[in-house]
């Protein structure tokens, strides 16, 4: 079994047509579907939030069979994720893509559970604490993309479950939970 770091790759990663954009509609639909699953799976496993289309992304080439995706194919597969709300373009030129391997509402729920488990109800935390504090170690919150985190926190604020305090800089923004 081929691996990418500690990620277990599926067998079809060695199937050369997987790396060529298929022109026939039905075949391509299936190909796109398999790429979406693999991208989300890999990003979840490796805690990757941003894919740069112009950077070397390990998933987009397979040195074993000497195949790699064309720029067109990469953009098409990511666009399919964007259409489903599982990713967002970060710029107009589609050079960077934010991968939501967990949806924003799922993140919000995850944060609530995290808060409850660690007894932070009615307490105050800084945003940086959530991303790199001792409590978040070993959870999916460790190293979470700041954009994604802020979006989840704002969603909680809308629901009245959190209040965000503006600090003097982005570093000391604070959150008060009221679960």
């Amino acid at each position: 079994m081929q691996r990418l770091g500690d990620f277990k790759l599926p067998h079809f990663f060695n199937y050369p047509p997987y790396f060529t954009l298929q022109p026939v509609r039905e075949t391509r639909d299936k190909q796109v579907q398999l790429w979406k699953e693999l991208i989300l799976d890999y990003c979840r496993n490796q805690k990757i939030f941003v894919i740069g289309l112009e950077d070397d992304f390990p998933l987009f080439s397979n040195p074993v069979i000497e195949r790699s995706l064309s720029h067109e194919a990469k953009e098409l597969f990511l666009a399919a994720l964007v259409n489903e709300g599982r990713a967002e373009w970060m710029d107009k030129g589609h050079k960077k893509c934010l991968i939501l391997w967990m949806r924003i509402q799922d993140w919000a729920e995850y944060i609530i559970n995290f808060v409850k488990e660690n007894g932070f109800e009615d307490g105050v935390m800084t945003v940086e604490d959530i991303r790199s504090g001792i409590e978040s170690r070993g959870t999916d919150l460790a190293g979470i993309d700041r954009t994604v985190l802020m979006r989840a926190l704002r969603l909680l604020e809308q629901k009245g479950k959190a209040t965000i305090f503006k600090g003097t800089s982005t570093d000391d923004e604070g959150v008060k939970f009221s679960v």
Binding site: P16, P17, F19, T20, P23, V24, T27, R67
Partner: peptide, 8 residues
Amino acid sequence: GMLCRDVS
């Protein structure tokens, strides 16, 4: 849909 292509 019986075959698919590989361009390299």
